[in-house]
Design a protein around this nucleic acid. Structure first.
Lengths: 196, 196
DNA sequence: ACACAAAACTAACGCTTATTAGTTTTTATA
DNA sequence: TATAAAAACTAATAAGCGTTAGTTTTGTGT
């Protein structure tokens, strides 16, 4: 049938993962078949197994790649010398950038993690829960420093993360607004509602 | 094997739909099998077909029941004599109430609509898009009346709807905060960031 | 108690799934 | 150009899927 076309910096496994992410968005992980994925890649289904271990492994790769990017960015931010407000703004902007620049994989990590197999499922949820908790700590510190209103920090984190996640809908609408403007408006909406 | 237990005001079809919603949340629509659903209901799989037409029909029932509830509430709100800010607040509070009181069905409508069959899929998306547009009009009217900041109304609607959707995570966390407090904090966060 | 309808059951169908085995073709190296 | 490895292919497997057919049990009204 064909041959997998690789670019310069991406392996065949990368090509498969990228096509898979797009397919998982369109059909959902379970409904997306290896035969469909193979067709998107330009090859017969069994040929995929020369490059990947299993369908489930593709999902793992996508989910943990994204989870690790968020986690390591948070590591860096926490170590920066600026105050809680500036840290929060940095994090919000990073989420927005990730949604705009790595849409497919972020979407899959957000929507299809449910189909990870153990122990990956537990690991993923543990990592995500840890991320949320660190944000709550950040919010608490901002409240203690009198930077933020005395809102419940869990609620604030939930609100912010959910609003950011919702950028996935932007990809579909494509309104007449630049990414720059989008980012400023969202940061403004989410932050100014917090500042005293 | 058994018999479907119906309460007073719910038909056997309702019982199936309710169990199905819970199962669709746990496994996703595609991965949830009719045999699993049957077991949850307490019956053999083919027996379900005495009460429902198909698996897909269950999903349709759930999705449109929820969509219609949101649409008709918006109808009522738009006809109320209060200003845009008060209308927006009413709508936000309704979303929060729906998330807290009809969690399973709202979750399924939000996550599994992708698996609706045509023409239901198109109808559902059309209805949802219409809902969003009406909210944008509301935001625009609020901006024109100088009630809201001059933020992009699409971005604001996206931010608000996404944050509200994110209440689905609340169900899992169950932190030490009352529904009342949760509602006030979210409304405050989302609105006060808009008011001049 | 009898008759009819509702709702359960068992068995099975045709289809799709991810994956494996075994083989052939392509590519890279020397 | 010969050789070895990489990567494609075809064929097939076992398992699970939604659903249908046909039959038996259960419940209801007279």
């Amino acid at each position: 049938m064909g041959k997998i076309k690789t670019g310069k910096n991406n392996s065949k496994k990368d090509v498969i993962a990228r096509k898979a992410a797009a397919l998982f968005i369109k059909k959902g992980y379970t409904s997306a078949s290896m035969r469909e994925l193979a067709e998107a890649v330009g090859v017969e289904a069994p040929s995929l197994y020369n490059h990947i271990g299993s369908k489930s492994e593709i999902l793992q790769t996508i989910c943990f790649k994204i989870a690790n990017e968020f986690t390591s960015h948070l590591d860096n931010t926490e170590n920066s010398p600026v105050n809680a407000l500036a840290q929060l703004e940095t994090i919000i902007r990073f989420h927005i950038q990730m949604m705009l620049n790595n849409f497919d994989e972020v979407y899959v990590a957000n929507h299809e993690w449910k189909h990870l197999k153990e122990p990956f499922l537990s690991n993923f949820l543990f990592q995500r829960r840890g991320y949320e908790k660190r944000l709550v700590v950040l919010l608490e510190s901002g409240i203690k420093s009198d930077l933020f209103k005395k809102i419940n920090p869990y609620v604030a984190v939930l609100t912010i993360l959910s609003a950011l996640r919702g950028l996935e809908f932007w990809q579909q609408h494509k309104k007449n607004i630049s990414n720059q403007q989008l980012e400023e408006d969202m940061v403004n909406h989410l932050i100014k509602g917090l500042i005293k």
